[in-house]
């Protein structure tokens, strides 16, 4: 009886584990890879399962930086992730879109429409303030002037602490 109860609890726990999608942008701005790994770490600590979607270069930067996958879990091709979410085959509790250009804004707006996830826009790069002002759809902005040094963006991320919500 007790044993069965334990199995049911475990099943409920697995079922209820929250998940997060990290949508990477073009990796030309150095802070992206660093902040993505940090965010993955914080999400894991909070019991949230992170999945990373990006183009081949963006994902490969993470795979090479974390060869034993201490932090990195599942990775997805960006187009495949969009397909799965749009076709309602998959969704996430949280979604973080990395933005440093107009394309990133388009991806964030898309996620806001196709996914039910709580949407966070992680905005960085030298034109971060212009990008912030161009976002007119509902999302939580985490923004900083960060190009090479990830600390201003890390500080903003820690202040918002999306893993604690």
């Amino acid at each position: 009886m007790y044993k069965n109860r334990g199995l049911i609890d475990l099943a409920d726990e697995v079922k209820s584990q929250r998940s997060a999608l990290l949508v990477l942008g073009c990796p030309q701005v150095p802070v992206q890879t660093s902040i993505a790994l940090y965010l993955i770490h914080r999400l894991r600590q909070a019991g949230i399962s992170p999945v990373v979607a990006g183009n081949r270069s963006a994902v490969t930067l993470l795979v090479v930086a974390d060869p034993k996958r201490h932090y990195l879990g599942e990775t997805l091709d960006l187009d495949r992730a969009i397909d799965q979410i749009t076709e309602k085959k998959r969704d996430f509790d949280l979604c973080f879109v990395f933005i440093h250009n107009d394309a990133g804004v388009s991806y964030a707006a898309t996620m806001g429409v196709i996914s039910k996830a709580r949407l966070y826009a992680i905005i960085y790069g030298e034109h971060y303030d212009k990008i912030v002002s161009s976002i007119e759809f509902p999302c939580i902005n985490i923004a900083a002037n960060a190009v090479h040094n990830p600390m201003p963006l890390k500080k903003m991320l820690d202040e918002v602490a999306p893993w604690a919500v």
Partner: peptide, 8 residues
């Protein structure tokens, strides 16, 4: 048509 590295 939008690509992450090349814009729209």
């Amino acid at each position: 048509f939008t690509k992450p590295c090349h814009g729209t």
